[in-house]
Write a protein that binds this DNA or RNA. Structure first.
Lengths: 244, 244
DNA sequence: GCTTGACCTTGACGCGACGGCAGGGTTTCT
DNA sequence: AGAAACCCTGCCGTCGCGTCAAGGTCAAGC
């Protein structure tokens, strides 16, 4: 048989068979005088087994191991390992499909799914179009997505945002958008913000959660200079209280 | 943030993030004076979404489509397509695991699993260590593995192998191993073999099944010259009766 | 004899999502 | 001042083939 014939017989492509020769999975057969490969029935039997094994999901290396069974009992080992692997993949896919269906059934809010704790927090927060509040929501969503803060923080923040006075604080922060860094409103706003934070929140701040080195400066870069001054003081205070 | 920091924050490797820049999934951020990439919070939010999507199994191209949602409703389409894809994969894996478990529970006969019809046939065949019979078993197993013959053939062959006289035929074929091609035993053996084949078998031979071009010569190459003569005559007769 | 078309040959590149390494520079800590 | 831990660019490797590219071979039809 020529390569195309044996390929059709066992249901492989000629390219696959040549590949098997190339990687040493199947020895090169004799050649006809014209250089064509001449396959025997034994080759077909071998290739049929290779096909069955690869269709089961074995890699070519594993197929080689199974076929070159010197030990006689190796195959079972390989196959059991493969089954475990497939089981993992199956569970993996099931979980992904699960999360996918959750995504599909949800309203398209474009921010993606959030944890229940954060969802509750956002629903609870008063409606405001303050840019600072929007930034805060973004940052909280990021914390949620990266799991860098514990769920506990969101529930604790719930008691904060329930206070209608928080909107006023955001507005005072917004007002500093164009202000110079030595604006006199900075210090009192920082103090009022600190005062608004419930005591338990300090304890809940993880030592090395969001506070990855460099995160702080990136966060401050989001704000205008005077605003950054306020936020920076807040974060400094947080980190000091957290360590203390 | 530097690249290592944002990578730790969103749970990716620096290499992956640079790869995303490379393929245009995420624009290159500003650089610091020393050439380091300077990431913002917005980048982190973006990367977090990328991570979630790739973890769901989307390709980077698909992620790009979903993120660059100009149409607003594209994502659902992509996600549904993905779900269908995952469903296919899941079914695929389940089938493989099914066949794998069948393989594992079977006794290790080293020839792999065979169809029930062939298994019955082999169990039914008389015990003999005739080399010709061994070849025949190999060829039948190959036909089974490649689905090139119908199951029907095996059941029809059952009536043939049940006849104890068949063993004698195999032995007569074995005896020709060293014989010259003009051995006088050739013609009568071929005739007796033809006579032993039940009539229904001729009708069951598929027109273009095993009889791929070149298969015949490969099969004949398995035998000694005188034996090949016998087998060749048999096959010629088969093909003529099949066509007639 | 000549063409056509279906085969065959070797060899090299492409894919997808990065990992790893080479060969350098920068920052920071000690 | 040296070492550790970062950062940079760029290129090769993975896996199982598919897909050209640039030919050589063979049977059939004119």
């Amino acid at each position: 048989m020529r390569i195309g014939e044996i390929a059709a017989l066992v249901g492989l492509t000629t390219r696959a068979i040549r590949h098997y020769h190339h990687v040493g999975l199947l020895p090169e057969p004799e050649r006809r005088p014209n250089g064509y490969r001449a396959y025997s029935i034994r080759d077909a039997v071998l290739l049929a087994r290779v096909r069955r094994l690869t269709e089961l999901g074995l890699s070519l290396d594993e197929v080689r191991d199974v076929l070159a069974e010197d030990a006689g009992r190796e195959p079972a080992e390989v196959l059991e390992e493969l089954d475990a692997d497939l089981a993992r993949q199956e569970a993996d896919i099931r979980e992904r499909r699960c999360r996918l269906s959750a995504l599909l059934s949800e309203p398209p809010d474009a921010t993606g799914p959030v944890s229940p704790a954060l969802a509750a927090l956002l629903a609870q927060a008063p409606r405001t179009d303050s840019p600072s509040a929007a930034k805060d929501r973004d940052h909280l969503t990021l914390m949620d997505a990266t799991n860098s803060g514990s769920q506990e923080i969101f529930t604790l923040l719930g008691t904060l945002v329930a206070d209608p006075a928080v909107v006023e604080l955001y507005e005072r922060l917004d007002a500093l958008a164009e202000a110079p860094v030595d604006d006199p409103r900075i210090a009192p706003l920082a103090a009022d913000l600190m005062a608004a934070v419930p005591e338990e929140l300090f304890a809940a701040i993880p030592e090395d959660g969001v506070v990855v080195t460099g995160f702080k400066e990136a966060l401050l870069a989001e704000y205008a200079p005077a605003q950054a001054e306020v936020v920076g003081r807040l974060m400094d205070a947080f980190m000091e209280r957290g360590r203390g």
